[in-house]
């Protein structure tokens, strides 16, 4: 696909926030790659920096949050070097688009669906006339499988259910033929039954439009069912990444393992799910050693001393831990 082999390439990205109590380190990502047509999952608990990652790529960071170093390469260009105007006109919506986590709050409450959808279509297709825009809007609503597009058009957001709103938002997100989709916990605020429909829709439309998707979620089961590759985010850092099978079956990092162990599955019925002891490291005063060392049950002096880097243990699988690099012997002990 195209001249550029990678859809999105994040290199050595560091994002910090200025707060009243000091500088907070939000993200420190050495490398994150999204290939064309691929769905890459980013999994992590709340506070791990998932949403900040999405907003950094979109260039929509809050005013007190800054990128201190790194690159985000898209089609060979570093998005972090682009100004607001370029991002707005050339990138957002028609190259990279995003679905947000709270459909209840992501539609403007005092405008109709028609108004909001049309203006997104219009801004990216300035040549269309009113009729064509309307037709295109109906087409988009049809595409996201809203049962009565014409009726939905004239509704205000509060007259729609959460699932319907998320479908409208997906229609808005995809109305300008973006190549990359960032889905930031798109189903978080929805009922479980509706979640499935939305996920299927995202997958389907992804295939139809040949989208490369960054699928962000805190739900490991969901990520595993949708994505081919997974990166595990802990306190703003990728601590393990690999193909879905690598992560599910051969997780190396203690954090990933306990994340998986805490998932309720049919086989664990009646047993108490394990809880990882300890707390998240403070983002205001991040440890210079391994960020997980405070909670790690197999911690060594080396971990308290130095910071591990993400190192490959197979072609597809890498982990950021000193102990698990020499694979098998430490594995069972954890």
């Amino acid at each position: 696909m195209g001249v550029y082999d990678r859809a999105l390439e994040i290199i050595d990205l560091e994002v910090k926030a200025k707060t009243v109590s000091g500088t907070a380190e939000l993200l420190n990502i050495k490398e994150l790659i999204l290939d064309w047509g691929e769905i890459v999952g980013i999994v992590g608990e709340s506070g791990s920096g998932k949403s900040i990652l999405a907003l950094t790529i979109m260039g929509l960071l809050p005013k007190n949050v800054f990128v201190t170093k790194g690159k985000i390469l898209y089609k060979g260009e570093d998005l972090l070097k682009k100004d607001e105007k370029f991002m707005r006109e050339k990138i957002r919506g028609n190259e990279i688009t995003m679905i947000f986590q709270d459909p209840m709050a992501s539609l403007n409450p005092v405008f109709t669906v028609k108004n909001q959808l049309s203006s997104v279509i219009k801004v990216k297709n300035p040549k269309l006339n009113k009729n064509e825009i309307y037709k295109k809007a109906i087409e988009m609503l049809d595409l996201v499988k809203l049962s009565d597009p014409e009726m939905t058009m004239n509704k205000y957001p509060h007259e729609l259910s959460g699932g319907m709103r998320q479908r409208v938002l997906i229609a808005m997100a995809l109305s300008a033929q973006a190549k990359i989709l960032i889905s930031d916990e798109a189903t978080r605020a929805l009922d479980v039954t509706i979640q499935l429909g939305i996920i299927k829709l995202i997958q389907e439309l992804g295939e139809k439009f040949n989208l490369s998707t960054l699928f962000i979620s805190s739900n490991m089961a969901l990520i595993a069912s949708v994505c081919k590759k997974i990166s595990v985010l802990y306190s703003g850092e990728v601590i393990e990444k690999g193909n879905t099978n690598d992560i599910l079956k051969e997780a190396r990092h203690v954090y990933t393992k306990s994340f998986l162990a805490s998932l309720p599955t049919a086989g664990k019925k009646g047993t108490v799910l394990p809880i990882l002891e300890g707390n998240y490291p403070s983002i205001l005063d991040k440890p210079k050693n391994c960020i997980f060392s405070d909670r790690c049950p197999i911690v060594t002096d080396e971990c308290r001393d130095k910071k591990p880097t993400l190192s490959a243990i197979s072609d597809s699988h890498s982990v950021s831990c000193f102990k698990n690099l020499d694979s098998d012997k430490t594995d069972k002990g954890a």
Partner: peptide
Amino acid sequence: EDYIRAERAYGIKERK
């Protein structure tokens, strides 16, 4: 608000 962020994400002009 989230909806303003969403509007920005879809490329709507800041003035609008």
